[in-house]
Amino acid sequence: MIKVLWQDFIKGIWRENPTLVLLLGMCPTLALTSKAINGVGMGVATTVVLLGSNVVISLVKNLIPNRVRIPIYIVVIATFVTLVDRTMQAYAPESLYNALGIFIPLIVVNCIVLGRAEAFAAKNGVVRSFFDGLGMGLGFTLSLTVLGCIREFLSTGGVFDIILVPGWNFMLPGLAPGGFILLGVLLAFMNVLNERKAVKSGKLYIPPQGMDCKHCRICFIDKEE
């Protein structure tokens, strides 16, 4: 039992990392990671929502008719988002709430939260759903923080508002295009690591969701059909 829970928890952090492997929740990932502290704040807020919605949905999963499950999930998620939003408005530091402001309500449409409700919480018990939510939330927080640290360091020369290289100022990584470029680099790095690991242990490396050279048809987009 403990092993199953550990698996549910740990898969969100690396093997099924929501941002870097499942590629869900790209909007907050790109919009908010210009500073490391924003990544942490958004990650924690999403984790709380994810925990709440996973627990509630796994508790009432038998009372939800299949035909109206998506609206009910959205109502549950929106309720938790509003709770988190008002809690942050009341108690979080002013600068953090100002930076995250408009993105907190958008957690409602974050695919990670709805995706875990539909794919995990609706099929599993409350304890497993809790650990799944915790792992996924932590994976999201970690990837946002890592991307935030890289972008903040490359644009201002520091992390968490502490300058490490005085006088460094380079705008691109702090803006949206730089976010796309660095996210791409991070994904490539992640794939290289996974491939190395697979080759070393003698297994065949299967990239997530058919994102390998065999399945990629991008070169043939205008030639097919």
Partner: peptide, 19 residues
């Protein structure tokens, strides 16, 4: 109680309303 297979529109509406 299992309401997973409820198909009656009225019942669905009531459930959504309660939520």
């Amino acid at each position: 109680m299992n309401l997973k297979n409820v198909k009656n529109s009225l019942a669905l509406g009531v459930i959504l309303g309660i939520v």
